[in-house]
Design a protein around this nucleic acid. Sequence first.
DNA 1: TGATTATATTCGATTAATCGAATATAATAC
DNA 2: GTATTATATTCGATTAATCGAATATAATCA
Lengths: 147, 147
Amino acid sequence: MSTKTPNKPCNYENQARLYKALMHPARLAILDVLRYGEHCVCHLEAALGYRQAYISQHLMLLRDAGLIEDRRDGWNNYYRVTKPDVYKVIDAALRLIGDNSDRDSISRFENPLPNCTCPKCNPDTQTNSDPHVCEPPITSPGKPSIV
Amino acid sequence: MSTKTPNKPCNYENQARLYKALMHPARLAILDVLRYGEHCVCHLEAALGYRQAYISQHLMLLRDAGLIEDRRDGWNNYYRVTKPDVYKVIDAALRLIGDNSDRDSISRFENPLPNCTCPKCNPDTQTNSDPHVCEPPITSPGKPSIV
DNA sequence: TGATTATATTCGATTAATCGAATATAATAC
DNA sequence: GTATTATATTCGATTAATCGAATATAATCA
């Protein structure tokens, strides 16, 4: 059956595609980590505790949906959200389901993670020359343990 | 695999459930018809052109998701949206995908539909004599053709 | 060059969603 | 009561999503 109604022929389809991309808990978690800035795959691994390949699969899907882009820097591949307005959808959804946590404060994922190997999380172990220099981490005093 | 991350354990799941309910073009179309008021199943049939059982299946799913409720009145079963904030999610999604149509004006679905048999669409044929005659619709000046 | 590190991709089995067809139910009319 | 109308539900086949395992690639280091 054609899912096109006689009216607004294609916006239902496009909208449904967006929700399909958002429909998975792991992808929502990934977008949560990326909310305040780009991060590499190993950071997502450390932050979320998922397998690397599993994360990569979901990243692929989000990329195909046009929600994220990647940028390679040396060993690491950094992902960032290309359409920040996606968080307007997410926040409206969170309000709808009754989530009242503060989403306007900076994410706990912005701090270095102990299990992450990327230069962003390990600024001191910059070997010889620093080809992939990352700005010093803003070590907030009360860095929360992720696990 | 558990899809729970060590953080926000269940909100990703609940949010994903919401998107799952919104993920289908037919369900988005249904919610579009119900945006400005309750309507019966035959109205949805007439407005969208889908089979009755098909619409009923999607209504069931939306009901299970807690987004709509029904109210029986004689022959007809009227559905309404229980969480109007769902349109905040939908509107944010429409803006994200670049839809600029005016959604604040009253829906074209609020007008009587020629192929709908419900009393709402046939106010004068209230009683016994021919129960399913569709009176000429109140053609509002700029009422767009549905087909 | 080969080894290592970070990440991407493919494959396949399992589970879930879709959707047509047929049937069931519940209210009303006669 | 039976017939009719509006709607709901079940069944089954097809398609799509999920996710672990294995493997591939691409940059870097020695």
